[in-house]
């Protein structure tokens, strides 16, 4: 199987794993990691599809989009972590569930 098919398929799997993580995991840090999985999945799809130019260099436009996306992901992750840290120091919680439910 060529990388132009393998990478997008792996990307799809990473994306699905991220979707599952965002929905199923309660811990906020887990959700941030899941969002990163989701983003990495999209990048892998784009990188794989950029290589479909038979023999020539890869299509530069998806590569540039991925580069832009990585920076936006960094910004998103940092902001999410800073918010979680403040939320934790204000409430002592690491999930969005009310305290009595989280203990069960």
């Amino acid at each position: 199987m060529s990388t132009t098919v393998l990478y997008p398929l792996l990307g799809a799997a990473l994306f699905a794993l991220g979707v599952w993580g965002l929905l199923a995991r309660k811990h906020l840090i887990h959700k941030v990691i899941a969002a990163n999985f989701l983003g990495s999945g999209v990048f892998l799809v784009l990188i794989g599809l950029a290589g479909r130019t038979a023999g020539a260099d890869p299509d530069p436009v998806p590569l540039a989009m991925v580069l832009t996306g990585i920076v936006v992901t960094v910004a998103l992750t940092a902001l999410a972590l800073a918010l979680i840290k403040r939320y934790y120091s204000a409430t002592g919680l690491d999930t969005l569930e009310p305290a009595e439910e989280a203990e069960q």
């Binding site: 060529s2 132009t4 599809l49 130019t53 038979a54 020539a56 260099d57 890869p58 530069p60 436009v61």
Partner: peptide, 10 residues
């Protein structure tokens, strides 16, 4: 479903 070979905007 995408074509296996595509020039894109290359």
């Amino acid at each position: 479903s995408l074509p296996r070979s595509a020039e894109g905007l290359y």
